[in-house]
Design a binder for these strands. Structure first.
Lengths: 92, 92
DNA sequence: ATGGCTATTTATAAGTC
DNA sequence: TGACTTATAAATAGCCA
């Protein structure tokens, strides 16, 4: 989406990588917000830049998203394997 | 991005909402993958549809993202308020 | 519900200042 | 190092043989 077509592979030049990161990070956050509103969805997005900095967005709160994620994973595990131990399975 | 311009507000018609959800969900997952690759970032995305179904993507694993998120939040808290208790602060 | 199709809107790669 | 600009690629809204 720009003056030229690009291939999806790591951008070697670190300055270009930072510029692209900043632009696309804004884009994806916007998309996340729109999805939440348009479709009445709960969305959580966590991004660590290559320099290790954290960026986050949650349509509700990140705690709510992570808690719900954990519960959903436990449920999935329970359905898939009713006799297994709970917890610890939402890692993968 | 389509035949008509839309306003970003909840789509009332549930069938349209589902269709839009499915299309945009694919779009944002693609964007998340591209961001991870192009910019060498670690990305985690969790989406619950309005019907409560979970969709997820992580460039590494969700466990890795959530763990790292927790550590980053603890660090932020520590920097902001050196004498406070740790843990429990990454909720908000 | 589902999967194409394309006119149109939107995102963004390069470029400019 | 950002903040703008713009040509072009990409996403998608509305439709449907």
């Amino acid at each position: 989406m720009g003056r030229g077509k690009i291939v999806i592979r790591r951008i070697d030049n670190s300055t270009s990588r930072q510029v692209t990161f900043s632009k696309r990070r804004n884009g994806i956050f916007k998309k996340a917000k729109e999805l939440g509103i348009l479709c009445d969805a709960e969305v959580g997005l966590v991004i660590f830049s290559s320099t290790g900095r954290l960026y986050e967005y949650a349509s509700s709160s990140m705690k709510s998203v992570i808690d719900r994620y954990g519960r959903a994973k436990e449920e999935q595990q329970l359905v898939a394997n009713p006799n297994s131990e709970l917890k610890l399975y939402w890692f993968f």
